[in-house]
Design a protein around this nucleic acid. Structure first.
Lengths: 193, 193
DNA sequence: AAATAAAATTGATTTAGATCAATGGTATTT
DNA sequence: AAATACCATTGATCTAAATCAATTTTATTT
């Protein structure tokens, strides 16, 4: 149940086995079924979730009821509404499981305590955040620069997992395209090869 | 020369005056004139720049020679190409002064040393990054969701400084619009009031 | 396994914003 | 202060992607 977490932390910092045992105690394991929500828009996000197994997504809903996906999260990734989680404000995102998933939840206070108990955890969190920030910049740039086809092609290269495991209409939403446009883009690409 | 830095750090963490004196020694002051570059696309970004005075911007240039602005940075903000700065890869961004500016530069090694010397500096950096990440998410969401007019209106509300101090064609670039479209959007808004 | 719901595809049409082009303004530069 | 380069505005036209609508395919549920 903690394999992915051990791997994720170990990739970024050095932690003894004893310290990892301490680390584990701060997390709350939780299973969540496909289509169940971990967070509803408007609620306060009380957890930062680490994914041991499965896929989740976070999304906003606009006035017309259309969903806009902010993030997909797979095994070994984290997902939360950061501003709600850190500042205690009402969330703008809904977080929902795309597959049956196994999570490790960290409350805001547990997170603070864990960073105090194991200073490398703060470093780990900073390193994760750096990567997440860089990835988001790339996404902004793609949104400003790229055509529909370029956006899709870049995604297939950078995140083949998303293409393989996520329904197409959700990929469209993530890229800021309609499902129809994405379907046509894929057809074009296939015709050319 | 260090007023803005003292303010920025003081807003996030607690630092004694003596520690701040230590902190100062890690920075290299630098003046840069309007239109001069701090970083050219393709070079390795050796500095994380804190802005004491002035405005800078970071942007990518596409195949057609068009510039796409990733970030504006004012007094009290930081600017860098994070992935180039941290990983030593060639930068995708150019960083350039919009006005004559005064900077405090931190090299990657100075930054590491500073975080070792003053652990609160690591926390300060993490807190900055958290805010930057949340702001970027908001920008992605706006890019996915909003019309040209909504993008502009949101910017006027969230960042009136940008509207007031940055040329219009750069605002257009930042929003992913052409200068013509932004001009028309502004006209529409003015006609309505 | 049949029934139902959800997702993907394809076609016809519309539209928001881009592009092309010209003019008037506003800064820099000499 | 004149000259030059850069910016913002306005108009006409074009186009990539959205919308509307129908059909086929694939998943879920009973």
């Amino acid at each position: 149940m903690y394999e992915q977490l051990a791997k994720s932390i170990g990739d970024k910092v050095t932690l003894t086995e004893a310290d990892f045992e301490v680390c584990k105690t701060f997390f709350i394991p939780k299973k969540i079924r496909k289509k169940q929500t971990l967070l509803l828009e408007g609620d306060v996000c009380t957890y930062n979730a680490f994914i041991e197994k499965g896929i989740l997504r976070s999304y906003t809903t606009d006035e017309k009821g259309q969903e806009h996906i902010m993030q997909f999260a797979f095994e070994g990734w984290w997902i939360t509404d950061l501003s709600s989680f850190l500042m205690g404000v009402h969330s703008t995102f809904t977080i929902e499981a795309i597959e049956d998933s196994e999570l490790l939840l960290l409350t805001a206070t547990a997170r603070e305590e864990l960073m105090d108990a194991l200073p490398v955890f703060e470093r780990y969190q900073r390193l994760l955040l750096q990567n997440a920030y860089i990835a988001l910049q790339t996404r902004v740039n793609s949104a400003l620069t790229a055509t529909a086809e370029e956006k899709y092609t870049k995604l297939t290269i950078s995140y083949p997992d998303i293409i393989a495991r996520v329904p197409q209409h959700m990929i469209a939403s993530y890229l800021g395209l309609t499902p129809e446009t994405l379907s046509r883009v894929r057809k074009q690409i296939n015709l050319r090869k």
